[in-house]
Design a binder for these strands. Structure first.
Ligand SMILES: Nc1ncnc2c1ncn2[C@@H]1O[C@H](COP(=O)(O)OP(=O)(O)OP(=O)(O)O)[C@@H](O)[C@H]1O
Length: 673
DNA sequence: GGACGGCTATTTTTT
DNA sequence: ATAGCCGTCC
């Protein structure tokens, strides 16, 4: 063996191999965001550029890299969005991704506050009030505080809630908000402050927390309890936030604190899609995001994968007129496609007829109803169309507007359940008492005074007598009957009766009252049955009620399924707000008239007007291929009957070239007239 | 005194 | 859907 060849072997540094082919599924900028390691990063990009997709892949990538899913936190705008994204990641990789902590700021806050309740002075079983619950509390306190006085106009309960909420979310005083937004109520400042104090006291006494408190208390926990903050950093080593343009100042500060010294936070958003300023959101948060950290990688995504270029040309034209924000131009590889159509209808009915006709035509072409959406600025603008859809038998689902949990009959039913959880829940008592025949605000108030004092006790059924002194015999009997029924329910509750069973007992008690109160009780009873079905999955009443407020069933009450079409997946009707982040092959946007979109009061301020414009931009960028913008020329006005409507300025300011203009004419069919 | 029916005018968007 | 207002009834 004279010549022995010596071959040197060396260790090649491991090239990380992934199960997913990220570089094939993502463009270079998306890939950069997905592979981003440590430190803060901001992905700022226009509609349809794959921000959501990027987040899903980043979850998968982190998990693949061995980050325990529990150490990842994904904050999104709705809980549904979080679920879908994690589900997507799980499909891409494996089930571990479902274990990632995900939800809204509010649901995350709830989870953390449950864990550290004592640190912020809460009892661990605190309850969350939704918007309408908060309004009900304010309403009750208002009548109690100012019962004898004041004939003059007091703000609507909704306005009250809005004033207080805006003050908190924007970190301003009530005085500031009044002078900025409600100057006509400025003289009521002392009363409004008094009411606010009463509201805070009420919440504290009853262990209640509203949406704003969730954020406020989480922030307080992070700021004032360094050891808790460190525990949270240790747990959530990678934080991701979607839709950052719609965070409010509280959420922004929470995000920064959650990122901690390692600054492992990745935020995603589009300043041109900021549409929640009425909730305190401020698109400047996304602009300021990089400044909050030592170092921040900024990634922009340029290519739109959703829509055809004609649709993007229109979207670009809309946003190029915006006063605020970064300029950007959306570009697509799909250069060809039908032009968006701007369509003039004579009136609302003709608008509905066209939508129905065109939906059917698209379905003929093979586009399923589930790939089509009709959008509008406000949910009541669908009423007429809904009638027409039902008549023709097109199944649809409606999102946005009045939610199931906000309807009077569902709130009535839940009031019974709430009394079982907390006998001093005076708001629920108020609701329930007013349902009884012969009981009005005055009697209810007298009874509730006693309940507030703690006179009524489950252990002592006779205690009700003390509340009924001086009340007429027939009303006494009614109230006592109610109380006895409640006591029976309470015994069931103590025996850990399953939630659906317990609620169904509440419903049995409620049913005659429902029938007495509402002419359309059949329809309402179906809603109650729907609610009972939702309760099936829950172990405790607490959990159920909390989920109803933190993750309310978004679908509005829609019950149309024409015979024979049960199998077909339905058409979507949605407010533009609720359509955020979603996409459809064909999108109709109805009621593009001046005063409806933009809403009339948006003319009061540049900020409001600009937000309407962004909202319009969001609406148009939901469409993949077909976009129809409709405006009826005539509308009904309360005072003058028919009035001539003008098309939205957002339409008239557009260049002729970005859309086709259609005019509808109704065929005079066979002289039936 | 208080409940209640019937009238009118006003109603955005949502965690 | 909700609030305020007013007349009527118990
Ligand atoms: N690299 C890619 N290759 C193929 N399809 C992509 C790619 N990136 C995104 N898409 C597709 O483009 C569409 C829009 O993506 P996505 O919803 O993630 O965008 P987005 O930026 O979150 O939009 P928006 O801001 O409007 O919510 C989706 O159908 C997505 O699957």
């Amino acid at each position: 063996m004279a010549h022995e060849r010596r071959i040197q072997v060396r260790i090649i540094p491991a090239r990380r191999t992934y199960r997913l082919r990220y570089e094939e599924e993502l463009n270079p900028a998306q890939l950069q965001a997905v592979m981003h390691q440590n430190g803060a990063a901001l992905v700022i990009a226009g509609a349809g550029t794959g921000k959501t997709r990027t987040l899903a892949y980043r979850v998968a990538r982190l998990v693949e890299d061995g980050v325990p899913p529990e150490n990842i936190l994904l904050l999104t705008f709705t809980r549904k969005a979080a679920r879908q994204m994690l589900h997507r990641a799980a499909q891409l990789l494996d089930g571990r991704c479902e274990r990632v902590a995900g939800g809204t700021f509010h649901s995350f806050a709830y989870m953390i506050l449950r864990r550290y309740s004592h640190a912020v002075g809460l009892s661990p079983d605190f309850t969350v009030l939704d918007q309408t619950d908060a309004e009900d509390v304010l309403n009750l306190l208002r009548t109690e505080l100012f019962r004898e006085r004041r004939r003059e106009r007091f703000p609507h309960k909704r306005t009250l809630a809005d004033i207080y909420s805006t003050a908190i979310n924007r970190n301003r005083s009530i005085d500031d908000i009044l002078s900025a937004e409600y100057p006509h109520f400025q003289h009521l400042l002392p009363e409004l402050k008094q009411l606010y104090d009463a509201y805070r006291l009420y919440k504290r006494r009853h262990g209640l927390v509203d949406y704003d408190d969730l954020l406020l208390l989480l922030l307080q926990l992070l700021e004032e309890h360094p050891e808790k903050r460190q525990q949270l950093h240790a747990q959530f080593r990678y934080v991701m936030v979607d839709e950052y343009q719609d965070t409010n100042p509280l959420q922004h500060r929470i995000s920064v604190l959650l990122a901690g010294p390692e600054e492992n936070i990745l935020a995603v958003g589009d300043d041109a899609q900021s549409i929640y300023s009425f909730r305190g959101a401020d698109f400047r948060n996304i602009m300021d995001f990089p400044n909050a950290f030592q170092q921040c990688t900024i990634i922009t995504l340029e290519e739109n994968y959703r829509s055809t270029q004609p649709i993007l040309n229109l979207a670009n034209a809309i946003i190029s007129r915006a006063i605020y924000g970064y300029r950007k131009q959306l570009q697509s590889r799909q250069k060809e496609g039908p032009s968006p159509a701007i369509i003039r209808a004579e009136d609302e009915r003709q608008q509905s007829l066209f939508v129905v006709q065109q939906v059917l035509a698209l379905r003929e072409q093979g586009i399923p109803l589930s790939d089509i959406a009709v959008l509008a600025r406000a949910s009541h603008l669908f009423f007429e169309l809904e009638i027409e859809l039902s008549r023709v038998g097109i199944p649809y689902r409606k999102f946005g507007g009045l939610k199931l949990t906000e309807t009077a009959h569902i709130k009535d039913l839940l009031a019974f359940a709430r009394i079982l959880l907390n006998i001093t829940d005076t708001v629920s008592w108020h609701r329930v008492l007013l349902m009884l025949e012969g009981v009005g605000p005055r009697t209810a108030h007298r009874i509730i005074e006693g309940i507030r004092e703690g006179i009524l006790r489950w252990e002592d059924p006779q205690s009700i007598e003390n509340l009924l002194l001086g009340i007429s015999p027939s009303i006494r009997t009614t109230v006592i009957q109610l109380w006895e029924a409640l006591c029976t329910l309470f015994r069931l509750y103590l025996r850990h009766t399953p939630v659906p069973e317990l609620l169904s007992q509440c419903a049995t008690l409620y049913r005659p009252l429902l029938q007495r109160q509402y002419d359309d009780h059949h329809k309402r009873w179906r809603d109650i049955e729907a609610l009972l079905a939702l309760a099936e999955r829950y172990q405790t009443l607490q959990e159920f009620l909390t989920d109803l407020t933190l993750d309310p069933p978004t679908e509005s009450v829609a019950d149309v399924a024409a015979p024979g079409s049960q199998e077909e997946s339905p058409l979507t009707l949605s407010t533009v707000h609720s359509a955020k982040g979603l996409e459809w092959t064909a999108v109709f946007l109805i009621w593009m008239t001046d005063g409806r979109f933009p809403v009339a009061w948006a003319y009061d301020s540049v900020e409001a007007f600009e937000e309407e414009r962004r909202l319009f931009y969001v609406a148009c960028t939901r469409a993949r291929r077909f976009l129809y913008l409709l405006y009826p020329l005539r509308a009904i006005d309360h005072e003058s009957g028919w009035i001539l409507a003008k098309p939205s300025p957002f339409l008239t300011e557009l260049d002729e070239s970005v859309a086709e203009h259609w005019v509808l004419v109704t065929e005079n069919s066979l002289g039936t007239g």
